[in-house]
Design a protein around this nucleic acid. Structure first.
Length: 586
RNA sequence: GCGCCCGUAGCUCAGCUGGAUAGAGUACUCGGCUACGAACCGAGCGGUCGGGAGUUCGAAUCUCUCCGGGCGCGCCA
């Protein structure tokens, strides 16, 4: 409909030009908007306001001229000028009614579009370090990322969802060592647990199972473990030196092969837990990309060679630096440390080179807001690799700050004090959790009150939308109980009986769905879909309370049933896009 | 200190590529089941859109500045 109006306006502009009212060089941006107030019709354009200046006339006069030049169209029943010079379009009600047939015909695919033109898009999100279970902060990235990806898929992009697994580096060594020390405790060796180790209960679980499965294979005497290790922080030492020494000791005492097994054991338990957790949360990935694989297949070296070949690398103080400041970063960055180890950033350069090599048209990274300082250096790396940096879009998701009542809940993986995504899901339910996360736009800081979410689950708006769906289902069951059958064709033939204002409003709400879906997808704003679904549910509930559907008049009854079934269809389409259940009863 | 994000009703948030009277939910006050589910609906209450200046026909929206809050500024990942 919007497009139709745009075409009509294009004609009018062409006529304005040929009449000499408008200069030929002017190519106005036509914006057609939904009206907020139905007194202003269905659609409005500010075209006359925008063109008044170049046409050297006043907006209302120009609006009249435009209307007189507008070709007539059967879908448009009335055109008005309002306010300072808005042109308001009223759509023929028959045209609205056709929508019900269209929704019925297209069913699940109603609202999908092809604007993505099958372009290849990669969306990388969550990518939490596999050092512990996902917490509620990760949940937001997971819910948001999958919603964005699924929306893009719905409007015709070819989307690949990916999780970057940081299975290398010091954090992982700390994890392996933490597991080992807990394992030694299981064996009966007394070793003080480092203040900088992972203290979570899940580490003990992994150690317990490891001990159960392998016996004393990893056991080493406590005095050998602690011999000559620098003091930990609580004893006046340095916690970083302390834990690094313990890591080194683990490697020496266990040997490369056993240490690797230990490392792998911890990693796979945690990673499997994350995969399962996300699966249950309705989030799936096409690919789990391992950081370690970049080291093993020489990708990091290749990437660095490429940077070197284009002259962006140099040596200083024993380390290798990437001259990212030449490409907009605030300073240069180390890629190979003076001890010969490559940095995390070097892995990331290689990873992004890999993404580019895979030929995606668009690469979307969804990161926590704490990574924002990282964007310039990654973009610099892409440029240095000779790629178009606009291919990369980084979306930052702000933190969810947890409260229990008015008390702030701390979140730190290291300390082990955090609320896991699993706990949240079991307390508030997966549907409610997803809905709540996606309800807010990503840049908005989010206050998540656990007390509120858990004690008053019925107040979560997800139930409001699901209830609308269940209510339609209930009406259909009632129809059956009364011994009536639905007559689809009779209903379609009598759509013109739907003349109540509540019906018109509901149909109008239905008609917004496709354009809304496109907007939400292209702008990466799934919260728009949530808000829409709530509005739609509201239109339905209002209608439900104002009129009875199961009336004696068979023609009217079936017309109304067709309308509410169309509503049910769109509620289902929208909710399932967000991976939220559409219950038939609640 | 520099950089990014945010500041809208008592609370949680929409609205931001400039558009008509700034909207929801929640809380509070009324009203609605001899109706297909009251997990619902209707009405009311509630605002210097953080302050100030600018841009223009028009600013919550754009620019500048100040104030307040979050986050980041490692040879950590």
């Amino acid at each position: 409909m919007k497009q139709k109006l745009e075409t009509l306006l294009q004609h009018a502009i062409a006529s304005l030009k040929s009449e000499g009212i408008l200069d030929h060089g002017v190519t106005p941006q036509i914006s057609i908007e939904r009206t907020k107030d139905s007194k202003h019709g269905d659609f409005a354009t500010n075209l006359a306001l925008a063109l008044a200046k170049p046409a050297k006339t006043n907006p209302r006069q120009l609006a009249e001229k435009i209307i007189s030049l507008l070709p007539t169209d059967p879908a448009v029943s009335k055109i008005e000028i309002a306010g300072p010079g808005f042109i308001n379009f009223f759509i023929n009600s028959d045209n609205h009614l056709q929508l019900i047939k269209q929704i019925h015909k297209e069913g699940k695919s109603y609202g999908l579009s092809a604007i993505g033109a099958n372009k290849e898009v990669q969306v990388e999100f969550v990518s939490a370090n596999p050092t512990g279970p996902l917490h509620v902060g990760h949940g937001r990235g997971a819910a948001y990322g999958s919603a964005v990806a699924d929306l893009l898929q719905a409007v015709g992009f070819n989307v690949s969802k990916e999780y970057y697994v940081n299975d290398a580096g010091r954090q992982m060594d700390i994890l392996a060592t933490s597991v080992w020390l807990r394992y030694l405790e299981e064996c009966g060796e007394v070793v003080a647990f480092p203040s900088n180790g992972y203290r979570g209960e899940y580490i003990r679980d992994i150690a317990f199972n490891l001990h159960k499965d392998t016996g004393n294979e990893y056991r080493r005497p406590a005095d050998l473990v602690t011999e000559d290790i620098p003091a930990d922080e609580p004893l006046g030492g340095d916690k970083e030196l302390h834990i690094d020494a313990l890591i080194a000791r683990a490697k020496t005492l266990l040997g490369k092969s056993l240490y690797n097994d230990l490392f792998q054991a911890g990693l796979s338990v945690i990673l499997n837990d994350i995969k399962e957790d996300l699966e249950e949360f309705g989030v799936s990935f096409q690919k789990w990309f391992s950081e370690r694989s970049l080291m093993e297949d020489n990708s990091i070296q290749d990437a660095l060679d490429r940077l070197d070949a284009s002259g962006y690398l140099y040596q200083k103080e024993g380390a290798t630096w990437f001259a990212s400041s030449r490409l907009g970063d605030e300073k240069d960055r180390v890629v190979v440390r003076d001890n010969g180890q490559s940095t995390y950033f070097a892995s990331d350069i290689a990873y992004h080179m890999n993404k580019l090599d895979r030929g995606f048209d668009q690469i979307i990274n969804i990161w926590g807001a704490d990574h924002h300082g990282y964007i310039p250096r990654v973009k610099a790396a892409m440029q240095a690799l000779g790629a178009d940096e606009s291919k990369l879009k980084v979306i930052l998701v702000q933190f969810a700050v947890l409260y229990r009542g008015s008390e702030r809940v701390p979140m730190s993986t290291r300390s082990g004090e955090f609320v896991t995504l699993r706990q949240l899901r079991s307390e508030v339910g997966t549907d409610a959790a997803r809905f709540f996360y996606v309800m807010r736009k990503s840049e908005q800081h989010m206050d998540f009150d656990l007390k509120l979410a858990t004690s008053k689950t019925n107040e979560n708006p997800v139930f409001y939308v699901q209830y609308a769906h269940a209510r339609v289902c209930s009406v259909l069951r009632q129809l059956d109980d009364k011994g009536w059958e639905r007559n689809l064709i009779l209903g379609m033939d009598n759509l013109n009986k739907l003349t109540e204002p509540h019906e018109t409003a509901l149909i109008k709400a239905l008609s917004k769905y496709p354009e809304l879906l496109e907007k939400a997808a292209i702008q990466y704003e799934p919260h728009l879909l949530i808000h829409y679904l709530r509005e739609l549910a509201n239109s339905f509930h209002t209608y439900y309370n104002a009129h009875q559907f199961l009336v004696e008049d068979e023609a009217l009854r079936n017309a109304r049933l067709n309308l509410i079934c169309a509503t049910k269809q769109i509620l289902a389409n929208g909710l399932s896009l967000l991976n939220i259940n559409t219950p038939e009863s609640m």
